[in-house]
């Protein structure tokens, strides 16, 4: 085979060019820290990254949802807790009202105290957080209890997704803590109002009755807190699972996408060596002696 000058030069050019392309690719990876800069860099990895990315963004949203559910449930828990305390205070008052040494003016004072506590209960039942009423079911933009102490909300609960096909209830069923106006629940405000009247009038039988209903009201509050506690523990569990998934997904994406620096650097070293060798041999090829030097 004859070797012409053109072959010598063109081949050197091509060889150096090829090494340079590999060098640039590796430098791009090293400087960006990312191995898959475009789908063609590794199409399978690009697909997997895209799938994981979706899951990851969903997990992030679930984490936000979990936080929101956590906030709502915590507020509800505190509020119902405070309402239980108030009911206990009312129970003490009712027991004091039953005392036979009470004068009418004493009972009047007690009745006033009951009225004040009722108003406090009213504030609790119409608790508003993050721009919504939390005890009125889906009727979240209007107070669930009107001025006549009637429940005007509905008995729904707001469900929030905290995972794929995993919902938690971020609110308790409307009216379940303070009464929804049906026989299924104790109407706490009716209870307090009746108690107030009974104490004011000093009717012992009615006071006894309302005291018993107070026990039911307290029981109802405890039931509501149990419901909240259950949801909160599910929220906590979801939080742990999501945090775990979050870490897993991040690691998974990093593994697919990120550069393995050790191997990339050593590859770059290999390419650089090859490039150097190519340049060295090419320059010899190009300088190569020719008959011209002797004739």
């Amino acid at each position: 085979m004859r070797v012409t000058e053109k072959q010598r030069f063109v081949l050197s050019q091509l060889r150096i060019g090829k090494q340079r392309v590999r060098q640039i690719k590796l430098t791009e990876q090293l400087s960006s820290g990312i191995r898959v800069n475009r789908p063609s860099d590794d199409s399978i990895a690009a697909k997997k990254v895209s799938v994981l990315q979706t899951e990851y963004s969903r997990i992030e949203q679930y984490q936000k949802n979990v936080e929101a559910a956590h906030r709502l449930l915590t507020v509800a828990d505190h509020t119902v807790g405070e309402s239980s305390n108030t009911l206990f205070r009312l129970k003490e008052i009712a027991i004091r009202g039953l005392n036979s040494s009470m004068t009418p003016s004493d009972r009047n004072n007690l009745a006033e105290e009951i009225a004040t506590l009722r108003d406090h209960m009213m504030t609790l039942a119409n608790t508003r957080t993050e721009n919504r009423y939390i005890f009125g079911g889906y009727a979240m933009s209007t107070p669930p209890y009107d001025n006549a102490f009637n429940f005007v909300g509905d008995t729904n609960t707001t469900s929030i997704a905290v995972g794929d096909s995993s919902l938690v209830k971020a609110t308790i069923p409307g009216g379940s803590a303070f009464g929804d106006g049906t026989a299924a629940t104790v109407d706490v405000f009716d209870n307090i109002n009746q108690l107030e009247t009974a104490v004011r009038l000093g009717i012992e039988v009615d006071m006894q009755n309302e005291l018993e209903r107070l026990e039911e009201s307290i029981e109802q509050g405890i039931e509501a807190r149990r419901f909240i506690g259950l949801q909160l523990s599910r929220v906590e569990a979801s939080k742990t699972i999501l945090a775990y998934k979050d870490t897993e997904l991040r690691a998974g994406m990093a593994q697919l996408k990120d550069v393995d620096f050790t191997s990339a650097v050593s590859q770059l070293k290999v390419v650089e060596n090859a490039l150097q060798a190519t340049i060295a041999t090419s320059s010899r090829l190009m300088k190569g002696t020719s008959l011209l030097d002797y004739l």
Binding site: S50, Q53, T54, S57, R58, E60, Q61, Y62, K64, N65, A68, A69, E130, N131, R132, M140, S141, T158, I160, A161, A170
Partner: peptide, 19 residues
């Protein structure tokens, strides 16, 4: 891809406070 993800997340965000 990200636009679709964002859409569904916006739905979930809205589901917290649809009002």
């Amino acid at each position: 891809g990200p636009a679709v993800d964002e859409f569904f997340n916006a739905a979930r965000d809205l589901s917290q406070e649809p009002h």
